[in-house]
Design a binder for these strands. Sequence first.
DNA 1: CTGTATCCTACGTGATACTG
DNA 2: CAGTATCACGTAGGATACAG
Lengths: 126, 126
Amino acid sequence: MEPTHLHPPVRCRMIDEVLSLIGDKWTIYVVVMLGQGKRRFSELKREVDGISQKMLTVTLRGLERDGYVTRTVHPTIPPRVDYELTELGRDLLVPVRALGDWASRHEARVVDARIRYDTRLAQAAE
Amino acid sequence: MEPTHLHPPVRCRMIDEVLSLIGDKWTIYVVVMLGQGKRRFSELKREVDGISQKMLTVTLRGLERDGYVTRTVHPTIPPRVDYELTELGRDLLVPVRALGDWASRHEARVVDARIRYDTRLAQAAE
DNA sequence: CTGTATCCTACGTGATACTG
DNA sequence: CAGTATCACGTAGGATACAG
Protein backbone atom coordinates (compact mmCIF):
# COMPACT_ATOMS: atom_id res chain seq x y z
CA MET A 1 0.00 0.00 0.00
CA GLU A 2 1.15 3.49 -0.83
CA PRO A 3 1.53 5.46 2.40
CA THR A 4 0.57 8.61 0.53
CA HIS A 5 -2.91 7.26 0.17
CA LEU A 6 -3.51 6.33 3.78
CA HIS A 7 -6.31 8.25 5.43
CA PRO A 8 -5.48 11.42 7.38
CA PRO A 9 -5.16 10.16 10.98
CA VAL A 10 -2.69 7.47 9.98
CA ARG A 11 -0.66 9.83 7.83
CA CYS A 12 -0.45 12.22 10.75
CA ARG A 13 1.00 9.61 13.01
CA MET A 14 3.57 8.72 10.38
CA ILE A 15 4.54 12.29 9.91
CA ASP A 16 4.75 12.65 13.66
CA GLU A 17 7.67 10.25 13.67
CA VAL A 18 9.54 12.48 11.26
CA LEU A 19 8.57 15.64 13.06
CA SER A 20 10.01 14.37 16.31
CA LEU A 21 13.20 13.93 14.32
CA ILE A 22 13.39 17.15 12.40
CA GLY A 23 11.29 19.24 14.73
CA ASP A 24 14.23 20.51 16.70
CA LYS A 25 16.62 23.16 15.61
CA TRP A 26 19.74 21.18 14.77
CA THR A 27 19.07 17.60 13.73
CA ILE A 28 18.74 18.27 10.02
CA TYR A 29 21.94 20.28 9.92
CA VAL A 30 23.90 17.53 11.63
CA VAL A 31 22.47 14.84 9.37
CA VAL A 32 23.33 16.84 6.27
CA MET A 33 26.86 17.40 7.54
CA LEU A 34 27.34 13.72 8.28
CA GLY A 35 25.96 13.03 4.83
CA GLN A 36 29.28 14.29 3.53
CA GLY A 37 31.15 11.70 5.50
CA LYS A 38 32.37 10.67 8.94
CA ARG A 39 32.98 13.53 11.36
CA ARG A 40 34.42 13.90 14.83
CA PHE A 41 32.74 15.90 17.55
CA SER A 42 34.87 19.00 17.24
CA GLU A 43 34.56 19.03 13.47
CA LEU A 44 30.79 19.04 13.70
CA LYS A 45 30.93 21.69 16.38
CA ARG A 46 32.91 23.87 14.00
CA GLU A 47 30.92 23.13 10.86
CA VAL A 48 27.35 23.29 12.10
CA ASP A 49 27.78 26.99 12.65
CA GLY A 50 25.91 28.36 15.66
CA ILE A 51 25.42 25.12 17.56
CA SER A 52 26.39 24.98 21.22
CA GLN A 53 28.33 22.10 22.68
CA LYS A 54 25.32 21.06 24.67
CA MET A 55 22.95 20.96 21.72
CA LEU A 56 25.44 19.10 19.56
CA THR A 57 25.70 16.43 22.24
CA VAL A 58 21.95 16.25 22.69
CA THR A 59 21.36 16.10 18.94
CA LEU A 60 23.94 13.39 18.37
CA ARG A 61 22.57 11.30 21.24
CA GLY A 62 19.11 11.52 19.73
CA LEU A 63 20.35 10.51 16.31
CA GLU A 64 22.31 7.64 17.81
CA ARG A 65 19.30 6.48 19.79
CA ASP A 66 17.10 6.48 16.70
CA GLY A 67 19.65 4.50 14.74
CA TYR A 68 20.68 7.21 12.30
CA VAL A 69 24.30 7.53 13.37
CA THR A 70 26.97 5.41 14.97
CA ARG A 71 29.29 6.69 17.66
CA THR A 72 32.81 5.34 17.73
CA VAL A 73 35.11 6.15 20.64
CA HIS A 74 38.85 5.89 20.13
CA PRO A 75 40.48 5.37 23.54
CA THR A 76 43.37 7.71 22.83
CA ILE A 77 44.64 10.77 24.63
CA PRO A 78 43.13 13.17 23.94
CA PRO A 79 39.96 11.19 23.24
CA ARG A 80 38.57 11.09 19.75
CA VAL A 81 34.97 10.28 18.88
CA ASP A 82 33.73 9.70 15.36
CA TYR A 83 30.16 9.99 14.22
CA GLU A 84 28.93 8.40 11.03
CA LEU A 85 25.58 7.90 9.33
CA THR A 86 24.19 4.38 9.40
CA GLU A 87 22.49 2.93 6.35
CA LEU A 88 19.23 4.24 7.80
CA GLY A 89 20.78 7.66 8.19
CA ARG A 90 22.09 7.75 4.63
CA ASP A 91 18.68 6.63 3.49
CA LEU A 92 17.03 9.46 5.36
CA LEU A 93 19.27 11.84 3.50
CA VAL A 94 17.30 11.26 0.31
CA PRO A 95 13.97 12.81 1.34
CA VAL A 96 15.74 15.37 3.48
CA ARG A 97 17.78 16.55 0.52
CA ALA A 98 14.67 16.58 -1.60
CA LEU A 99 13.15 18.97 0.87
CA GLY A 100 16.32 21.04 0.96
CA ASP A 101 16.44 21.20 -2.81
CA TRP A 102 12.83 22.22 -2.96
CA ALA A 103 13.55 24.98 -0.48
CA SER A 104 16.47 26.26 -2.49
CA ARG A 105 14.37 26.35 -5.65
CA HIS A 106 11.44 28.17 -4.06
CA GLU A 107 13.21 30.32 -1.50
CA ALA A 108 12.77 33.48 -3.56
CA ARG A 109 9.05 32.97 -3.96
CA VAL A 110 8.58 32.61 -0.22
CA VAL A 111 10.62 35.71 0.47
CA ASP A 112 8.57 37.63 -2.09
CA ALA A 113 5.32 36.40 -0.62
CA ARG A 114 6.40 37.57 2.82
CA ILE A 115 7.31 41.02 1.62
CA ARG A 116 4.00 41.36 -0.19
CA TYR A 117 2.07 40.15 2.84
CA ASP A 118 3.89 42.46 5.23
CA THR A 119 3.50 45.40 2.88
CA ARG A 120 -0.23 44.82 2.57
CA LEU A 121 -0.50 44.57 6.35
CA ALA A 122 1.39 47.82 6.89
CA GLN A 123 -0.79 49.64 4.37
CA ALA A 124 -3.97 48.31 5.95
CA ALA A 125 -2.76 49.64 9.28
CA GLU A 126 -2.60 53.20 8.01
CA MET B 1 23.32 23.76 -10.76
CA GLU B 2 22.02 20.97 -8.58
CA PRO B 3 21.26 22.37 -5.14
CA THR B 4 22.23 19.04 -3.63
CA HIS B 5 25.80 19.72 -4.61
CA LEU B 6 26.13 23.17 -3.14
CA HIS B 7 28.70 23.52 -0.42
CA PRO B 8 27.62 23.14 3.21
CA PRO B 9 27.00 26.74 4.33
CA VAL B 10 24.74 27.45 1.38
CA ARG B 11 22.81 24.23 1.80
CA CYS B 12 22.27 25.07 5.45
CA ARG B 13 20.73 28.41 4.62
CA MET B 14 18.42 26.73 2.13
CA ILE B 15 17.34 24.15 4.64
CA ASP B 16 16.85 26.92 7.14
CA GLU B 17 14.04 28.25 5.00
CA VAL B 18 12.29 24.91 5.19
CA LEU B 19 13.01 24.46 8.86
CA SER B 20 11.36 27.73 9.72
CA LEU B 21 8.36 26.30 7.95
CA ILE B 22 8.21 22.81 9.36
CA GLY B 23 10.01 23.50 12.61
CA ASP B 24 6.86 24.22 14.51
CA LYS B 25 4.40 21.69 15.76
CA TRP B 26 1.45 22.12 13.40
CA THR B 27 2.39 23.47 9.98
CA ILE B 28 2.95 20.11 8.32
CA TYR B 29 -0.32 18.72 9.57
CA VAL B 30 -2.26 21.68 8.25
CA VAL B 31 -0.52 21.55 4.88
CA VAL B 32 -1.26 17.86 4.52
CA MET B 33 -4.89 18.44 5.43
CA LEU B 34 -5.22 21.24 2.92
CA GLY B 35 -3.56 18.92 0.41
CA GLN B 36 -6.85 17.05 0.34
CA GLY B 37 -8.72 20.13 -0.70
CA LYS B 38 -10.11 23.45 0.43
CA ARG B 39 -11.06 23.66 4.09
CA ARG B 40 -12.77 26.17 6.31
CA PHE B 41 -11.44 27.17 9.69
CA SER B 42 -13.70 25.00 11.78
CA GLU B 43 -13.10 21.97 9.58
CA LEU B 44 -9.36 22.26 10.06
CA LYS B 45 -9.86 22.77 13.76
CA ARG B 46 -11.77 19.51 13.88
CA GLU B 47 -9.49 17.51 11.60
CA VAL B 48 -6.05 18.50 12.79
CA ASP B 49 -6.71 16.68 16.04
CA GLY B 50 -5.15 18.31 19.08
CA ILE B 51 -4.66 21.81 17.71
CA SER B 52 -5.96 24.79 19.67
CA GLN B 53 -7.82 27.64 18.06
CA LYS B 54 -4.94 29.96 18.71
CA MET B 55 -2.32 27.74 17.13
CA LEU B 56 -4.50 27.05 14.11
CA THR B 57 -4.82 30.78 13.57
CA VAL B 58 -1.11 31.35 14.04
CA THR B 59 -0.22 28.47 11.73
CA LEU B 60 -2.59 29.58 8.99
CA ARG B 61 -1.32 33.15 9.17
CA GLY B 62 2.22 31.92 8.75
CA LEU B 63 1.29 29.77 5.77
CA GLU B 64 -0.61 32.65 4.23
CA ARG B 65 2.30 35.00 4.75
CA ASP B 66 4.71 32.62 3.08
CA GLY B 67 2.42 32.18 0.11
CA TYR B 68 1.45 28.56 0.71
CA VAL B 69 -2.25 29.13 1.30
CA THR B 70 -4.92 31.62 0.34
CA ARG B 71 -7.49 32.93 2.78
CA THR B 72 -10.94 33.69 1.43
CA VAL B 73 -13.45 35.48 3.60
CA HIS B 74 -17.13 35.15 2.76
CA PRO B 75 -18.98 38.13 4.24
CA THR B 76 -21.92 36.09 5.40
CA ILE B 77 -23.50 35.62 8.79
CA PRO B 78 -22.12 33.65 10.39
CA PRO B 79 -18.77 34.37 8.73
CA ARG B 80 -17.13 31.69 6.67
CA VAL B 81 -13.42 31.57 5.83
CA ASP B 82 -11.91 29.14 3.38
CA TYR B 83 -8.26 28.18 3.24
CA GLU B 84 -6.74 26.60 0.19
CA LEU B 85 -3.25 25.65 -0.94
CA THR B 86 -1.71 27.87 -3.58
CA GLU B 87 0.29 26.37 -6.41
CA LEU B 88 3.35 26.84 -4.23
CA GLY B 89 1.61 25.02 -1.41
CA ARG B 90 0.58 22.11 -3.58
CA ASP B 91 4.10 21.95 -4.87
CA LEU B 92 5.46 21.80 -1.36
CA LEU B 93 3.25 18.81 -0.76
CA VAL B 94 5.49 16.66 -2.97
CA PRO B 95 8.68 16.67 -0.85
CA VAL B 96 6.64 16.79 2.34
CA ARG B 97 4.78 13.65 1.35
CA ALA B 98 8.05 12.03 0.35
CA LEU B 99 9.29 12.63 3.86
CA GLY B 100 6.05 11.31 5.32
CA ASP B 101 6.23 8.21 3.19
CA TRP B 102 9.82 7.63 4.18
CA ALA B 103 8.80 7.88 7.81
CA SER B 104 6.00 5.40 7.42
CA ARG B 105 8.35 2.93 5.74
CA HIS B 106 11.09 3.21 8.34
CA GLU B 107 9.08 3.85 11.47
CA ALA B 108 9.57 0.32 12.77
CA ARG B 109 13.34 0.49 12.42
CA VAL B 110 13.52 3.69 14.42
CA VAL B 111 11.34 2.25 17.17
CA ASP B 112 13.54 -0.85 17.28
CA ALA B 113 16.69 1.24 17.43
CA ARG B 114 15.31 3.20 20.36
CA ILE B 115 14.38 0.10 22.31
CA ARG B 116 17.82 -1.38 21.73
CA TYR B 117 19.53 1.87 22.73
CA ASP B 118 17.47 2.27 25.88
CA THR B 119 17.96 -1.37 26.83
CA ARG B 120 21.71 -1.07 26.44
CA LEU B 121 21.69 2.10 28.55
CA ALA B 122 19.67 0.48 31.30
CA GLN B 123 22.01 -2.51 31.39
CA ALA B 124 25.06 -0.30 31.51
CA ALA B 125 23.56 1.50 34.49
CA GLU B 126 23.41 -1.70 36.56
C1' DC C 1 39.10 16.61 23.22
C1' DT C 2 34.66 15.19 24.53
C1' DG C 3 31.76 15.41 27.17
C1' DT C 4 28.34 16.25 31.90
C1' DA C 5 25.95 19.31 35.26
C1' DT C 6 23.68 23.41 36.54
C1' DC C 7 21.44 27.58 36.11
C1' DC C 8 18.79 30.85 33.54
C1' DT C 9 16.05 32.91 29.84
C1' DA C 10 13.05 33.14 25.90
C1' DC C 11 9.68 31.33 23.31
C1' DG C 12 6.14 28.13 21.88
C1' DT C 13 1.89 26.47 23.37
C1' DG C 14 -2.51 25.87 25.83
C1' DA C 15 -6.50 27.73 28.50
C1' DT C 16 -9.65 31.08 29.02
C1' DA C 17 -12.31 35.01 28.15
C1' DC C 18 -13.91 38.33 25.01
C1' DT C 19 -15.36 40.51 20.06
C1' DG C 20 -17.43 41.29 15.32
C1' DC D 1 -18.23 31.11 13.06
C1' DA D 2 -13.83 33.00 13.16
C1' DG D 3 -11.15 35.12 15.26
C1' DT D 4 -8.20 38.43 19.09
C1' DA D 5 -6.22 39.30 23.80
C1' DT D 6 -4.27 37.95 27.93
C1' DC D 7 -2.17 35.07 31.19
C1' DA D 8 0.31 31.13 32.74
C1' DC D 9 3.37 27.23 32.04
C1' DG D 10 6.89 23.95 30.29
C1' DT D 11 10.53 23.13 27.83
C1' DA D 12 14.12 24.02 24.34
C1' DG D 13 18.25 25.95 24.26
C1' DG D 14 22.39 29.11 25.62
C1' DA D 15 26.16 30.22 29.05
C1' DT D 16 29.14 28.67 32.19
C1' DA D 17 31.75 25.68 35.01
C1' DC D 18 33.64 21.37 35.73
C1' DA D 19 35.27 16.29 34.74
C1' DG D 20 37.49 12.07 32.52
